[in-house]
Design a protein around this nucleic acid. Sequence first.
DNA 1: GGTCGATCGGACGGGGGTGTCCGTTACGTT
DNA 2: AACGTAACGGACACCCCCGTCCGATCGACC
Lengths: 208, 208
Amino acid sequence: MTTEVPHHPVRSDARDNRARILEAARAVFGEEGLGAPMREVARRAGVGPATLYRHFPAKRDLLAETFAEQRRACRTAVRDALADPDPWHGFRTVIERICELHAHSAGFADAFMTAFPEAMDFTADRERTLRAVAELARRARETGRLRPDFVVDDLVLVLMAHRGLQDTPREARVAASRRYAAYVVEAFRATPAPEAATPLPPAPRLST
Amino acid sequence: MTTEVPHHPVRSDARDNRARILEAARAVFGEEGLGAPMREVARRAGVGPATLYRHFPAKRDLLAETFAEQRRACRTAVRDALADPDPWHGFRTVIERICELHAHSAGFADAFMTAFPEAMDFTADRERTLRAVAELARRARETGRLRPDFVVDDLVLVLMAHRGLQDTPREARVAASRRYAAYVVEAFRATPAPEAATPLPPAPRLST
DNA sequence: GGTCGATCGGACGGGGGTGTCCGTTACGTT
DNA sequence: AACGTAACGGACACCCCCGTCCGATCGACC
């Protein structure tokens, strides 16, 4: 990651506009999802379309920058979970935190789970998260609190599904997400008599 | 429901085209969701756009006709569930059947759960389903197999979420839906020690 | 086989989206 | 205060979508 030294110092209005664009983008894409028009971002930032496109040549460039913060939060969540002395507690916490992250930003949820526009590599973050969860699951399974037939793709499954909550009324969204996450944790919890329970249908391959 | 007697008998090509359009619409909207273009339906049916629009003046008219079959299947599912002597079995069966219905037709899932275009009243079907499930839940709760804190909006919650699975790879979709449904059932199942469990976050109001 | 008219389908208008061009503005410097 | 240049933004070209119009076509009946 080499930092390019600008030949001419950055002008103050350009710097301000870039910040306002990013702020607007977080709001717009967070509320309306990836489908929100670029003009809407420009309008809310109080700039013209051309200005927006000069700072970010294509929509995917803006998106990548816009969700940098959420990406960091995601990394932090899995790191914290891995450091948790109670693997099951770490496991359920990471689910709750990722769901909350996705609930507060519809756009990030889509970007994180679906490889939407080519070469917007949230895939790397997702893979890292998945590997961490796999390790977490291994430990949590050993404690007997996580059901034995859990596989990592099940997290992809419930997170893909979580995206469907984006179309719930805005005021109910975070509450819906929280209750959903709680149900997911209940579903993943080991049953007292594992042998007696009917086996789950086979898990489809969802992760790359 | 008055049946209009046509002044002139329906021409055979018109009747054939109508059938082919409906078949194409089921395929296209089923695979690609409500967002699929009308032209795509016309192309697959082997007719021109104008022909399509003469048979169905607006997109919502086509959609209403297209999913009539799924609507019937939905009604049948709840009727069967209500007739099941084991309420818990009926409850989990209706969840599985609705999920399967939604998995096989992305468009129906969207149409059924979201009041997308005005005046495409799948709302009536949804409300009927919800009332039936409420009754089913009441009975299932009495048997002690359904968790006591379940509310009808929780079904809306998991069904809204289920729509997120539409963006999974096509070949994995029905398997994903089946496993998802199984997890949902696990989540709704009563825990052996209801008092010891941590309470669920409050349920948001999702149904109309 | 001929005629009538309903049906067909290519071409059209309107709306909204992304990304670009160029005359104008205003920041930073001297 | 004046100037050079980077940054600004309105207008534009292009594409895809829905829904409509009109001349050509083909089925039904005689």
